[in-house]
């Protein structure tokens, strides 16, 4: 099979998985307990790394942008510049990449090991659909928690930027906050929430698909884990571009 047809087959498999997952939501049993457990391990478990990522991203944005802003005498727009970059782009994307690395790999490795040790076969033999029992709770948990994690990353990023502006460049805190509030529009916030919802689907479906199609023993588990992280990270970055374009179409190309 050449790489194009392989890509199309994978795309078809992922679409089927998406469909089965959606159908899994409609039917009993719905595995709410499992969903809550996954939200805890995915959401709460990722909070620390996502907050740290956000904090230092916000900090470095101010660190690099402030001298330029100062050159043009636009220091008072420091808050606005970091807010727009973070909330529109870096918050959702970096958060999704961190979660893809931490959670996508875990999902794919767990499901892959279950395939290799025949636990998935056993589950089907015992009358349970793996899509419903394993995929649906994980994808839903990602879709619910990723926007929340993104908000956490955004908030910590703004705090980080504020601290650097205040203590490294001696910018007045009030100026920073005023510029933040002036810079953020409701469209930015809505766009910044819609993106992680889509990214949640992407990471969840790709990781589950890669895990469930693991072949070739323990080596296969390693391969599908790597594939899951690489593929979901790349897809997130590509999808971000197109999503941004679509959102611009909806909200208008608002610049400051």
């Amino acid at each position: 099979m050449n790489s194009l047809s392989r890509f199309l087959v994978e795309l078809q498999d992922i679409s089927f998985l998406f469909w089965r997952m959606l159908r899994g939501l409609r039917k009993q049993p719905r595995y709410f307990d499992e969903m809550i457990r996954q939200m805890d391990s995915i959401g709460v478990g990722s909070l620390a790394i996502v907050s740290l990522t956000g904090f230092f991203t916000g900090s470095v944005l101010i660190l690099q942008a402030y001298p330029t802003l100062e050159y043009y005498g636009a220091q008072s727009s420091a808050g606005q510049s970091v807010a727009i970059t973070l909330i529109r782009e870096l918050g959702p994307v970096l958060c999704a990449l961190m979660v893809a690395g931490r959670v996508g790999s875990a999902i794919s490795a767990e499901l892959g090991s279950m395939v290799v040790s025949q636990q998935i076969d056993a589950m089907r033999a015992l009358g349970t659909s793996p899509a419903r029992k394993l995929v649906t709770p994980r994808v839903i948990a990602l879709v619910v928690t990723l926007p929340l994690l993104t908000v956490a990353a955004d908030v910590f990023g703004l705090i980080g930027g504020g601290i650097i502006a205040r203590y490294l460049y001696a910018l007045d805190a009030n100026t920073y906050i005023t510029s933040l509030r002036a810079g953020i529009t409701i469209q930015d916030i809505i766009g910044g929430i819609i993106k992680p919802i889509v990214f949640g689907f992407i990471i969840g479906l790709i990781s589950c698909h890669k895990g469930l199609t693991t072949q070739g023993g323990t080596v296969g588990v390693g391969k599908s884990t790597t594939d899951a992280v690489v593929l979901s990270s790349i897809t997130v970055i590509i999808a971000d571009f197109f999503l941004s374009k679509v959102l611009q179409g909806f909200f208008g190309n608002t610049l400051f």
Partner: peptide, 19 residues
């Protein structure tokens, strides 16, 4: 198939217990 599988018990090679 799910209905049919209720009539069948399956013992896997290594047990395939849920870890």
């Amino acid at each position: 198939l799910t209905e049919m599988r209720k009539k069948i018990g399956m013992v896997f090679q290594e047990g395939a217990l849920f870890d």
